[in-house]
């Protein structure tokens, strides 16, 4: 029926299990990609397919081809290592791009929505930024003040 008829039955069972597991995980990942609501939820869903979905299908292909050809096949390992290395890079770049875009849009809507005079809105924004920086400095100072001085430990 297939090209894998030369496999022994126990290896057929293992290959079938791995293939079904990998394809089901990939399908669940893309269902999550369609169903989830925000972008930062959705970016997690397809990694189900790129981590264990790809790994299990590649392992199944590797053991079946290695048994049939009677030597060790390493093509799948190349593909698997490439996927494992590149997926975090692409996801991190995409997440940072999305964050940058959302911040730029929030700044633009604050500029357009606050008042029609763009100069005033920009002044308000810079005032807000200064207040934010001052608040952060105060928080850091408070955190530094909360650290107990070293001689406090010496007292019983």
């Amino acid at each position: 029926m297939t090209a894998l008829d030369g496999l022994p039955p126990w290896l057929m069972g293992i290959v079938a299990l791995l293939v079904v597991l990998g394809s089901s995980l990939t399908l669940i990942g893309t269902i999550g990609l369609v169903q989830l609501r925000s972008f930062f939820d959705r970016i997690h869903a397809p990694t189900l397919g790129t981590s264990w979905g790809a790994a299990s299908i590649l392992i199944a292909s590797l053991i079946s081809w290695s048994w049939i050809e009677d030597r060790i096949f390493l093509h799948e390992l190349v593909i698997g290592v490439f996927i494992m290395v590149t997926t975090p890079v692409t996801m991190m770049l995409l997440g940072r791009a999305t964050l940058h875009r959302q911040r730029a849009e929030a700044r633009l809507s604050a500029l357009e929505g606050g008042s029609h005079d763009i100069g005033n809105a920009a002044d308000e924004l810079s005032v807000e930024d200064e207040a934010l920086e001052r608040a952060e400095d105060e928080a850091e100072a408070a955190a530094a003040a909360q650290v107990p001085p070293p001689e406090a430990d010496a007292k019983p």
């Binding site: 894998l4 990939t26 593909i79």
Partner: peptide, 30 residues
């Protein structure tokens, strides 16, 4: 948004890659 489309493209090429591997297993061609 545009980033959702890029994410969908990423998932699409991953599914196509795995489909090619399964088809190669079934047809017996390397």
């Amino acid at each position: 948004r545009a980033q959702d489309r890029v994410l969908g493209l990423d998932a699409l090429y991953m599914c196509t890659l795995l489909l090619f591997i399964v088809t190669g297993m079934r047809l017996g061609t390397p």
